[in-house]
Design a protein around this nucleic acid. Structure first.
Lengths: 209, 209
DNA sequence: CCCTGTGAACCCCTTCACAGCT
DNA sequence: AGCTGTGAAGGGGTTCACAGGG
């Protein structure tokens, strides 16, 4: 059902958006929807929506539009989150602890399995159900857990060094909350969450949009 | 010095990245840099870097490359963050309070000036230096502050309604942490911070990158 | 009639390559 | 020699518009 082909990053990012919208529709008991309805909710053109969807399969029905449940499942399969993915968290400051208590991960198939910090006060404790280790133990402990990705929520100094250490441990995906541009090793992917950058973009749009 | 022209959104997003890199260089006392050096740090091609920069002015010197300080200031001017921008925060859960104590905003010219919540226990208090009002008072209080943007950190239910109310109050820019796709009114800009979407993207890249 | 799926056109961003300059 | 700035070419994502079908 799910075609394998080259899907552009732009399309993948929109699929995440569609994912949320389909969640809502399922919660409302809606079983079918036309591309123009879904597109309006996602703020894209109907043609773009159809193009995005057909890039990995055919889920439309000419009479009834798209099968909401099937499409929802297909997107989950494509994004590879059908099986729960284990994540490690590094940094247990305000942000790190907020992330630990965030329920949104679980409902999307992500599980923070363990945490690291450099502060000895936090090491050895169990915070929000997760064991916390010292960052010096990274090389020793991390391989024992079957972790796919790492969330970085430390301070800026030493963050690049952590990326390098994680790369050597075989970690290929990092979600970076550190407000600093980090350079991935060969084969790694780093997604930056830069709140200030978003505000700057909004600032520009306010002045020039 | 700063050209006025149509700059693409892609370029604006990269400018935010360059902004961080130039911060670092200034901190290190570096005064000049060539496009290939800056491009390597930002993980873009030298040609793209030069194209981005020349879209709003000429800051390069053939002998010494780019003047780091001038370029830094020009980006700040262009993004419109040269003057501090006031921001309101709605929602004082874990995430909201984390944002209140985040120091990164101030150093980028953003100031959370006040906060709103629906919980009466928080209303009337001063949290991390900001007064907290009840969300029912939004229409009464918000216009008294000269706010440019609003950060939404509430629960999903009622978030779209808040967007509509903010739009009527003349707010045109929203940074949305609510894990739900929200539709802007005419003329509004909404930037979504969707952590799960980033993890889904990484998940896809791990499987197909 | 109105839908999906899609070839083809279009458009815009990226990259190339070089003129001009030091 | 090496750099910036830029016209021109290239490539990829978006939009158009229609064939096919209920």
């Amino acid at each position: 059902m799910v075609k394998v082909s080259n899907i552009s990053i732009s399309t993948i990012e929109r699929l995440c958006k569609y994912h949320r919208i389909l969640d809502d529709m399922i919660a409302q008991g809606i079983t079918n929807a036309y591309s123009h309805e879904l597109a309006a909710m996602a703020q894209v053109t109907p043609a773009q929506f159809r193009r995005d969807i057909t890039s990995f399969g055919n889920f439309g029905n000419i009479a009834k539009g798209y099968d909401v449940t099937k499409l929802h499942q297909a997107i989950i399969d494509l994004l590879g989150t059908c099986n729960s993915k284990k994540v490690a968290l590094i940094g247990l400051g305000n942000l790190g602890r907020t992330l630990l208590s965030y329920r949104g991960f679980a409902e999307r198939g992500f599980e923070i399995a363990l945490a690291f910090d450099k502060d000895n006060d936090k090491v050895g404790r169990v915070i929000a159900g997760r064991r916390c280790f010292h960052i010096d133990q990274l090389e020793e402990i991390l391989p024992q857990y079957n972790v796919d990705m790492v969330i970085l929520a430390t301070t800026a100094d030493g963050a690049q060094n952590l990326v390098n250490r994680l790369g050597k441990l075989g970690i290929r995906a990092i979600l970076n909350f550190v407000p600093k541009h980090l350079v991935p090793l060969e084969g790694m992917f780093i997604e930056q969450v830069d709140i200030s950058a978003k505000l700057e973009k909004l600032s520009y749009l306010l002045a020039n949009g």
